[in-house]
Simulated scan of single mutants.
Amino acid sequence: MAITVEEIAAIKELQAQGFGPYQISAQVGADPKTVRKYMKQDDFSPAVPQPKSLCGKLTPWIPTICVWLEEDQQNRHKQRHTAKRIYDRLVKEDPAFSCSYRTVSRYVADWKAERRQGHGAQELVWHPGECQADFGECDMYVRGSRVVVKYLVVTFPYSNVGYLQCFHGETAECLCQGLKDIFHYIGGVPQRVVIDNATGAGRRMGEVIRLTELFQRFKAHYGFSLTFCNPRSGNEKGNVENKVGYFRRNILVPIPKTESLEHFNAQVLEECELDNCRDHYKLNIPMCELFQEDKQQLLRLPELPFECCKYRRLLTDHYGKFCIDNCHFYNIGPQYADSELWVRIGAFTVEPLDS
């Protein structure tokens, strides 16, 4: 029978009063041998916790399990061995296997825990006036038709405030239009914008960053600095990654219905503003109050708004149609057949221009 800390303390106290082991045994109710053991003991410091040892019965199969788990490191995350799958394989492939599922599960969990050590992430510090941007994808009903929509989310990590705008794609025109509308809605320009390899902005290849011409013009017009995340480093913009999912589950459920994305975008900014009145997830202060510090660090808006469009010279075919990106066809009438024209392409419009 195990002896408690209170009983040990009572033994030492009675020993200090001059009682012998048999007298202490009678008062405490412990075996005299146990009493003598603790009477001789001088160090009662807490013992260092020892890791639990694995069940010895599993030892013959541990090399096999390790081989399977090591091979899994080259496979997709969703196509790797689970503890249940390892257990089922051992039962099926080796008639001598006699361990329980719990033993296998505990070993697999310990194996994975050892290899996770040193792979944590340091919490990033964000200053007022900095924002992150990213695209998500959802369904919407536009004029009665269900379509796939790309939505741009811009968040300010310092305050956790976020805004969204919806488009039919992730082009440079869409990215610039969404950022422009949010900048003008909040009344200023963030000092720094953090994005990943978004097609509309450009590409980061190693240390070389190549921006699209339209986004370069947009960046020069509004004067913010730009930071590209490292490849496969979503944690570097974790705030906007979380907000993309939050908006999808809340503002975009149930599936929105609208006559046009422009109309929806005007309304959803007000809905985002109401959502920003929630308390901050850590500070228990309304996010809209923290956002005032973000606003104080914003750059001034330029006097002239930016035209988020690009111009392209195209040829029409025999029917007066022209094609954009080898997949989108537009008909402007047979009177313009076999002719050259300029087209202004925006986030929501495609406008053929005459001379």
Rank of each mutant, 00 (worst) to 15 (best):
F156Q: 04
E137Y: 09
D181G: 08
P32W: 13
V125L: 06
E293K: 10
D31S: 09
E259G: 12
A337E: 06
Q132R: 09
I3T: 07
T59K: 10
V244A: 00
L211C: 00
A96S: 15
W342D: 01
D338A: 00
K112W: 08
L290I: 11
L226S: 04
G118H: 09
N75I: 13
V153L: 03
A133R: 01
R76Y: 14
R313S: 12
K37P: 10
P302K: 05
I195S: 05
R143Y: 08
N326Y: 04
W342E: 04
C327E: 15
A26W: 00
L164A: 02
E271Q: 14
C272N: 05
A109P: 10
P157N: 03
K40G: 14
V253R: 14
A266P: 01
N250T: 06
Q191K: 13
T199I: 09
G178Q: 03
N265C: 07
F264S: 02
P21I: 00
G144D: 01
G238T: 11
K84D: 00
V240A: 06
F329R: 11
E259Y: 08
N230G: 12
V153K: 04
E293V: 06
R312L: 07
P302R: 02
A30R: 12
K33M: 08
R248H: 07
V268N: 10
R36I: 05
V193S: 10
E340C: 06
G136R: 03
N331W: 07
L124E: 10
A113D: 07
E123R: 02
A337T: 03
D196S: 09
Y330P: 00
K112E: 08
Y185T: 06
R210F: 07
M287E: 01
R36M: 07
D279E: 13
S45I: 11
E170I: 11
T155V: 02
K219Q: 15
D279A: 12
K310A: 00
Q191M: 04
T34Q: 13
Y246S: 04
E236Q: 15
G144L: 08
F19K: 09
G120I: 00
A133C: 12
N75A: 15
I255Q: 04
I8C: 06
V35I: 15
Q191T: 09
Q79P: 02
Y222P: 04
I195G: 01
P256W: 12
A30E: 15
G187F: 08
D325G: 01
A83P: 12
V153W: 00
F306E: 08
C308K: 03
Y319C: 01
R76H: 14
R210I: 06
K219S: 11
G188W: 03
A96Q: 14
Y246Q: 05
G162P: 01
V208Y: 08
P190L: 15
P46M: 00
P254G: 12
L274T: 06
Q216M: 04
Q74A: 10
K12C: 10
R106S: 14
R217E: 11
E303L: 07
G56P: 13
K180Q: 15
P305L: 01
R217L: 13
N230F: 13
D134N: 15
C138V: 08
E6R: 04
H127N: 13
R80N: 05
L54M: 12
M39A: 09
V253Y: 14
C327T: 15
Q177I: 00
R192D: 00
D317Q: 03
E236D: 04
T4V: 06
